[in-house]
Write a protein that binds this DNA or RNA. Structure first.
Lengths: 310, 310
DNA sequence: AGTTTGCATATCAAAGTTGGTATGCAGATT
DNA sequence: AATCTGCATACCAACTTTGATATGCAAACT
């Protein structure tokens, strides 16, 4: 497949996208400003390279095979990425000033990014600040592709960490969010065994929070629930909890915001007798990336916050 | 720039990435399995194509220029996307079965996706369901690149809607979320003029919600605030509101969940005397994409919900 | 039956591409 | 001063690529 990657060309993706969207080779050829026989040979060459047909030929045009459809969909994304690349390159050439774009895992967002933004606002009026909350793999992907100046994130396994400047770890502790009248709220002390059988609303497999929770269930011999909804959205979590007996693992910082202790809200955050700890997230930037003054200031404020609290 | 796009090759991106990460042309050449002179010429050719230097030559290697850094960052993303493309293509060739992946704007997520998932769970135990909440441009981008089976979203301007199957629009109405003791909570009737001067936590520019709010401010002659934090994360919004006098426009469905009327929570959702309405979102899928049986069932449940409520 | 439409194949033309080795140049190191 | 290191340029070799026109084939349409 690596050899295949080296032989594919941008115009191959353009061709697949053009055929998929027009349904006709001749029209696709027109889009690429080549003749129909040239497009026919390009497609045949690509199908030979990949090893399976991408389109089914019909008397009045072509339709994609499942593989063709997958490739066309991805071609859209790749070509869009290429366009963005050129736009960013052009912006870099003309020297346009930036803003500050930060990504964070949930605990870091609530605990450190938000307060730091408030402080930054006092120092720098009119600052252009963008914040995203997402799982670590999305954040690191965004960092690598230049979507973020820096992130509060974990480094996903398989990622070459040498390219990162990494500072100051911090663990997250998990609580379980349920609706106010959930049967589990009547228990004095919760153990993992008590959690058996309740539906989950949780982040997708392979995220650290998911892995931490699954690991504790495995260790205690408690089976995982068969009903799981996968989402990173807090909104979907609380929407789902509001009308079911599902449980949602969340970090302590989020719990404090959504269901503070002593408050008479719609949700309650439960603690286990033995806390579940997620391994640390960090302040991560790219070694090769020079931060703007604004971004540097925000990063320093966040780092100050991390220092003060632990 | 379009001509440039047609002349760039995948190996150009590999070269830029390799030089950026190794700092040396000879090492980059090694990674690409070519000789150092060949790599030198490739780079020179690329720099001529783009029109500016990408790297600064030093006696002991090279460092990227700002443009080179931008291109290298994007190269990472593009090559990663290429890898994903090949993986998905290989998966499609081998015929692996899918799950259901849905994206939604906030109101749609709370109002229709979550209830539909609950119903689907009763019919199909163990169903593998993934839900994301994001702004429409991200959702449509994800739909086009095959991240989602379908989305509840708006169609961003400039997008060729012909490729979509679009069903049943629905408007969203905006309320303003503030902390419980915010000065604005003491007013009986709120007008846009009352909103002048308060800091915003709001989605990024060009999102429909942002545009709807800005439009109403323009129409009434009320200046926009100079202090704005841009985020799509509900968590960051409520975290920021919790300790400032900022206001956050949110949809009615989200308001009902986060700050229900009559509840004694930390936040209050305010209504304007004349409601702000965001133009409709829709159930959108790709015409060319065949939904799995599971995805079809979930889509139909959501459509049923949309029918029943208006 | 005749015509039209859309894709596939054959043949030809016209360079361009690609990468090797050899060597030069400039700055750093010893 | 001599040597080393890393990038740039010259020259050469070996195809490969790319796309045109012409034509064939099969199914749909009139």
């Amino acid at each position: 497949m690596q050899n295949l990657a080296n032989r594919l060309q941008i115009r191959d993706f353009r061709l697949v996208q053009a055929i998929a969207s027009t349904g006709q080779l001749a029209l696709a050829a027109e889009r690429l400003a080549i003749t129909q026989p040239a497009a026919s040979r390009m497609l045949a060459s690509l199908e030979k390279l990949i090893g399976v047909p991408l389109f089914v030929r019909h008397p009045k045009g072509m339709t994609p095979t499942p593989t063709g459809e997958t490739l066309a969909r991805n071609a859209n994304s790749l070509l869009h990425g290429l366009d963005l690349t050129l736009q960013e390159t052009e912006a870099a050439i003309s020297g346009r000033a930036g803003s500050v774009r930060v990504g964070s895992v949930t605990g870091g967002a609530v605990g450190f990014v938000v307060p730091a933004i408030q402080q930054l606002k006092r120092m720098a009026e009119g600052a252009d600040i963008h914040v995203d909350v997402a799982p670590s793999d999305v954040l690191i992907g965004g960092l690598l592709s230049g979507d973020y100046d820096f992130v509060l994130s974990r480094i996903p396994p398989g990622t070459d960490a040498r390219q990162f400047a990494v500072k100051r770890g911090r663990v997250e502790i998990i609580r379980f969010l349920v609706r106010r009248d959930h049967p589990l709220t009547r228990r004095e002390k919760l153990t993992i065994a008590d959690m058996e059988g309740w539906e989950w609303v949780i982040q997708a497999p392979h995220t650290p929070m998911r892995q931490a929770v699954e690991e504790v269930f495995f260790s205690s011999g408690t089976p995982l629930p068969s009903e799981i909804v996968n989402t990173t959205s807090l909104l979907v979590m609380i929407g789902y909890l509001d009308s079911t007996d599902a449980v949602a693992p969340i970090t302590r910082e989020v719990a404090e915001l959504v269901a503070p202790k002593g408050a008479q809200g719609r949700f309650v955050a439960l603690d286990l007798d033995e806390p579940i700890v997620i391994h640390p997230y960090h302040m991560i930037s790219l070694k090769s990336h020079t931060l703007s003054p604004l971004a540097t200031r925000l990063r320093d404020l966040i780092l100050d916050g991390l220092s003060l609290s632990g």
